[in-house]
Nucleic acid binder design. Structure first.
Lengths: 407, 407
DNA sequence: GAGTATATGTTCCATGTTTAGACAAAATCG
DNA sequence: CGATTTTGTCTAAACATGGAACATATACTC
């Protein structure tokens, strides 16, 4: 039961019905390709004539194409299959992280082309833009057979104003109010879109093509790495809020008297479960103390820690188990607040999922209010899926498939 | 950028455009009444002919009526004003609380008719239903000139399954899995809708008729009474979640090592700021200990406590100031998670708003991540506004104005 | 007071969209 | 080969908005 905003509404025009049905058809082709006009008409519950007209429009715009004639199921004329046309266009996804920056090229469906490349992140915007532009141009030259690049999507670990193309605050990069979009767009001559990495991850799952990976209702993506990013999907849309800062569950407290967080407050969830927090716990030092105490401290990663835990090192196991419990406790807050159908979890810690799942689940049940809340589905998204990169790509590829604004 | 759900979409039919524009017109009349067809057409940016047709349809359905001819602004024919027709229909709102149950009658616009009545809440569903049915019948008989009753809306302090008409769990009433809707509907012969009281409060603000009370973007309602209820509005819709339990920020922790909460967990926000928590703090006893320590303890209310604080009693002031700080700290979590345009606060504690606002605001700023987050608008909703009752009414009255489902 | 200008609300036709059904093309089965 | 079935196209009807003309009603001007 949605209220129409009397200050911001969209009246249905003569072409609105067509626009709606066109997008539905496009999405169904995306979800079910290859598909015939007749099947499309059955899925949409409209006459074949309407489906044909919609398909004709999509064909003439080059969004889809007619493939080979398919095999008939029984008797009767064989169907001509329709596909999303992602042959002559590609998208570049960029994932900027504190240590390294990753680049991936995909087609319009988000299918990976070539391999993921990376380079060390420069915290200075000038050199970073230059390096990015150089590498993107090179990658596009290498894959020239793909065709034109539709755009570049960038996931940034911090608060972002997508409309202004600015990074408002990225603590791990020490960025404040930096326009990342315009310099890069000018350098490569391709439109650039930027977004917070947690929201990008949520977008990646929302627009995933593998049908088993798309949640039916609301969903939440929790990305645990150096920091913790969260993206929330409500009614098929990423929750943005007034200033595009919605979803910052990372800084909802577990204990206001807890360890100091990089954000300045105390006891944030992030201060308990981020990779840095887990490592700090292992080394028994304060999270806000950036200086490693030893050579080992300086180089050890969470993956190393998990390896040690697997070999049975008690201290490593204890550190990881603590993180697991706190992870569960924080997920309970998300469940209580949002009641999602599914939670996705990404980040290095998920490589230990077999080890920690029972602990996460029991921590979660400590604080969820209902049995079904405690049973909320949790799915691990492995690093190989590159959720940040796929989300960055979705920034560019998804708008063509989005629902029209109506009423 | 909303994704169309390929498993649950609505194709635009021949009448869809009309349906959309009809609802827009209806909402604009609701928001701007009295209004002429010509003004409506200008607001909608359509031809007067179209507006006339839409108005004709609404007139024939009895949703609106033509009032007196208005005064001309300049020269030219005078407009005929249109109004929402709420003359011959009324709605009953019911607010069930642990101690007392309140009843209010309104017209379709939510305007109060007569006065609010109340009686002591029986925790047994049979007697409660009987008493409710008796009183509702009586009220409707008293206001017979109003016309037929369109429905009864009930706000319940607990988890609710509106589709099944059941209260899943209401701790303060000791209810579990109780069908509240069907017995009452059978007894009075009028449709009954039930909803969680936090969500009802959010609905009340969303559908408020005073334009200054309707937030433009997303909003959150925090109701602080015996318990704490929260309702979230996203994109003009109350956030429900998978099991209609979204919005339970009351049980997001401030400190997992904090005081035990009635929900079983520890350190929930509710355990710091509910009226019971504030009183417990004043009397220096454990929140979970239901037994009052003294006669004064058994009878003192938060309003009394506020009165004492205003007279300068240090202990009372300290208890309230603590609650204020914790209120702010928890609001910060809501702001970080949802980033709303506005937060509404209701409940007895708001009568001390002048006293506590600076403390709430500073507690809030302790944990918000950005300056604009810390500056999020907070509005107090006084008890006289009866947000729970207005929300209960909206359950019945609002669906007629809701946006059609499309795409 | 008559004429002019202007605003409201209705009416008619053009355009565009879904709905319904007929029809040709193509493939299978007996 | 003919009957049957399926796909895809095409046409007319029903219904929506878009645009303009028209009747009605009021105010202003001469």
């Amino acid at each position: 039961m949605r209220k129409i905003n009397p200050h911001d509404f969209k009246v249905a025009r003569r072409g609105t019905s067509r626009e709606i049905n066109r997008q539905i058809a496009l999405n169904l082709i995306r979800a079910h390709q290859p598909i015939s006009r007749a099947d499309l008409a059955r899925l949409m519950n409209v006459r074949r004539g309407v489906a044909s007209l919609l398909v004709g429009e999509l064909l003439s715009e080059g969004l889809i194409f007619e493939g080979a004639v398919g095999e008939a199921v029984g008797r009767g004329r064989r169907p001509t299959f329709l596909f999303i046309d992602s042959r002559q266009r590609c998208v570049v996804g960029v994932d900027i992280r504190a240590s390294r920056t990753f680049i991936m090229v995909t087609d319009l469906m988000g299918h990976q082309l070539g391999s993921v490349t990376s380079f060390q992140t420069s915290r200075e915007i000038g050199p970073l833009t230059q390096e990015l532009a150089r590498r993107i141009k090179q990658v596009l030259a290498d894959y020239k057979e793909i065709g034109a690049c539709e755009g570049i999507g960038i996931a940034v670990p911090g608060m972002v104003d997508p409309a202004a193309g600015k990074v408002l605050h990225a603590p791990t990069l020490y960025w404040r109010d930096i326009n990342l979009r315009d310099p890069l767009a000018a350098a490569v001559g391709i439109p650039v879109h930027i977004e917070n990495s947690g929201k990008a991850c949520a977008l990646a799952q929302l627009w995933a093509t593998r049908s088993d990976m798309v949640a039916s209702g609301n969903s939440v993506f929790v990305s645990v790495s150096d920091g913790v990013g969260v993206g929330i999907v409500v009614n098929g849309e990423v929750l943005r809020g007034r200033h595009n800062t919605a979803g910052e569950f990372a800084h909802v407290p577990l204990s206001i008297d807890g360890p100091r967080c990089t954000c300045g407050a105390t006891g944030c969830w992030e201060a308990y479960i981020s990779n840095l927090a887990t490592l700090s716990r292992y080394f028994g030092r304060d999270l806000t103390d950036p200086k490693p105490q030893s050579a080992e401290d300086a180089s050890l990663t969470v993956e190393d820690l998990i390896a040690r835990a697997r070999t049975g090192e008690a201290k490593a196991l204890a550190a990881i188990n603590s993180t697991a419990r706190y992870l569960g406790l924080g997920l309970a807050s998300i469940i209580n607040a949002v009641d999602p159908s599914r939670i996705y979890i990404g980040g290095e810690i998920t490589t230990a999922w077999g080890l920690i799942e029972p602990i996460v689940r029991s921590g979660l049940r400590e604080r969820t209010l209902t049995d079904f809340g405690g049973a909320t589905e949790i799915r691990v998204v492995p690093a190989e899926d590159h959720p940040r990169l796929r989300g960055a790509v979705a920034l560019v590829a998804a708008p063509a498939f989005a629902a029209p604004m109506v009423a």
